[in-house]
Design a protein around this nucleic acid. Structure first.
Lengths: 137, 137
DNA sequence: TTAAGTGTAATAAACACAATTACAGTTTTC
DNA sequence: GAAAACTGTAATTGTGTTTATTACACTTAA
């Protein structure tokens, strides 16, 4: 199974942007086609990142905490629990092998670069932009 | 569990680059700290990508098929079976929901951009460069 | 001819994620 | 102030993905 938290989170926030008012987790879950509990866990993460506000109780739910022009995909990416772009081999090195002892730090540098490239890409896309794409077809 | 094929493959090829001669799968597996069968499966993929040559039988094993200056990390990335950088939600849309019906193509564009950014990064790094980093500390 | 390899199928074990159930706590509405 | 409709969260189960392991046919050098 693959970690889809980022996709789920972007979907949820897009619904909130398009709706412009409070939406409950059951409705969001139907749109994403997942379980309301999964949505609520993501809502907590998004709230902690300052992207949404939630409200408990009757007529409760979630809504954006700020203008979608000021929400980037990078902020969403950082809010949720994404996997590394290039997963490293974390097992211990074979002490007798020169390459084995040093490959880890070298690969870590490569992975950091890849991660930075993805982050740069995501920083350039706003939620507002996705909203427009959706609304205008 | 996380897909570490790319890390494994880079490690293997670095050992081959540093060694400069045929190395068997048991030795490679010890360096990576995995199982020889896992290594041999990767060797098949790397051979099919034209990066190494393998030899069966006694004193067999693998060696680089070309100068490490002409092997990029992108070639290695493409040779093995990597996961998408940004996994998409593949489940079917909720027909009644406008966002749900259109988010998939929008997210696919985002994911393609991220993938392209990673590929560009990897294209700029050669196996020779890693080898140098390892050898020079 | 034997020893030491690769190639590969089949299965088991480990692990990561999502789904589900259950329930305590919160807030609105009547 | 009671009921209804939510969120928050713990605990467990289900499912898919990846690596580990075993087994063995095939290949090649000595």
């Amino acid at each position: 199974m693959v970690n889809q938290q980022f996709s789920f989170a972007v979907h949820i926030l897009t619904v909130l942007a398009v709706a412009g008012h409070v939406v409950d987790s059951r409705t969001l879950a139907r749109s994403v086609n997942t379980n309301p509990v999964v949505v609520r866990r993501l809502l907590v993460a998004l709230r902690e990142a300052g992207l949404i506000e939630t409200q408990a109780g009757k007529n409760g739910g979630a809504q954006l905490a700020r203008d979608p022009r000021r929400i980037t995909l990078l902020q969403i990416y950082d809010a949720v629990d994404s996997r590394p772009v290039l997963p490293l081999n974390e097992r211990k090195a074979a002490r007798h092998c020169f390459v084995s002892c040093n490959i880890k730090t070298v690969m870590a540098t490569v992975a950091e670069g890849a991660e930075a490239a993805v982050r740069k890409h995501l920083r350039g896309i706003t939620l507002h932009r996705l909203q427009q794409k959706i609304e205008r077809g």
